[in-house]
Design a protein around this nucleic acid. Structure first.
Lengths: 106, 106
DNA sequence: TGAGTATATGTCATATGTGACATATTATGT
DNA sequence: ACATAATATGTCACATATGACATATACTCA
């Protein structure tokens, strides 16, 4: 998927209530699955941060990033890669089994 | 991890026989886990391609890439992102459950 | 041995991701 | 209401990933 399309998707989704990204219109199953995965990792990251009682600024130091990028990670911003999300979760001490759990979750 | 460090790791690993990336010297557990994850996805991609009896060139058309990049994906080249590996696996019709399986596999 | 096919490796211009910064918006307390 | 902390959003220079291409190496099969 192109960046502009991803951005458009995100814009189109503002205020949209959904439980399953398959409901996004005009997206192939692969595109939906890819977006779903990022959203799952995003919320996992936020959940982990909150459970550790860290601010975004504090977490950004742990993962060697910036507060704004952490905010974008948690928001599922299209400019954030799965790599960064995975690296951040690993930096928070998340195990591979836990990671697998996130992805397997519908 | 920086690119140069990743490249160095790969070079250092040439001809190295290992079953667990934790054995890489000088890498933190997170770095090892990240590399392991990429290697698992790499071999999953290759296995899928072979089981479908596709050449790298054919697969490259399916995932809209190039033969050389497919080769790099399967080789665990440090310039290949998890994003690309995941997108490619999804394009091959791999389910979320299957991905989760790869993800969790030690 | 060769010719044909598949895979690997190197390079490069361009696309995309990143941290950092400024600033806006939203919470939380007093 | 006000101040203060936390989070969100926008932008940008720089870093990294990408597809494409050339070319090298490996693999079949005759």
């Amino acid at each position: 998927m192109t960046v502009s399309k991803a951005r458009q998707t995100r814009l189109e989704t503002k205020g949209w209530r959904f439980g399953d990204a398959h409901e996004f219109v005009g997206l192939s199953p692969e595109e939906s699955a890819y977006i779903e995965l990022k959203l799952v990792l995003s919320s996992a990251l936020k959940a982990k941060r909150v459970s550790r009682k860290l601010t975004q600024a504090q977490l950004s130091r742990v993962v060697k990033s910036s507060q704004s990028r952490v905010a974008k990670m948690e928001a599922g911003d299209p400019t954030v890669s799965i790599d960064l999300l995975v690296k951040s979760l690993l930096a928070l001490g998340v195990s591979r089994k836990e990671l697998a759990g996130y992805w397997g979750r519908a």
